[in-house]
Amino acid sequence: MGTASHLIVIGGSWGGIQASLSILSALPSDYSIPIVLVLHRLRNTDGDLNSIFEKKLLLKAQEVEEKDNITKGYVFLAPSNYHVLIEKDYSFSLDVSELENYSRPSIDVTFTSAADVYGKNLIGILLSGASKDGSSGLKYIFEKGGTSVVQDPREAEVSTMPQSAIDIIPECTVLNLEGIKEFLFFLHDHRTA
């Protein structure tokens, strides 16, 4: 069984690697909330995305293996060519079903599944990207009582993804990368996971 309490899910596409590195490299190794990161990537490549994150983060970076428990101290990366789902016992399931929004992994799939399990204790963050993936998942997080955060499109390398989320979730919180870091530190200080 993984950790109950809270979960942070982050999605990004074009420009999302740099943006998420910038945020996550600022976090301490004992960060109190587990983090799941879904980045669009090429299929059927053994990308070394994981080693990039391993090198740059104080937190441990790990590609999701099926049935891994969701544990704090980790950034779990969605593996190439799999969707990542969340089970009720706070473990991961993988899925190789149809592409969603031309993507596998799809951000919508993980955001939606996580919202069904974590409800109001879920924080969704959508970063830079040239895709519409993620916005309906982020809306679902909001509808389930969770927190929806979007990177400021003016700052994002590609604004399509954050902007399409803002268009359908007017109530979401728009922050630049510095603001997102600050918010994550606030969560770290105020929530015991």
Binding site: L85, K88, S97
Partner: peptide
């Protein structure tokens, strides 16, 4: 069957 996928399907 793992439930997260069943529910989604």
């Amino acid at each position: 069957y793992a439930r997260a996928s069943v529910y989604r399907r």
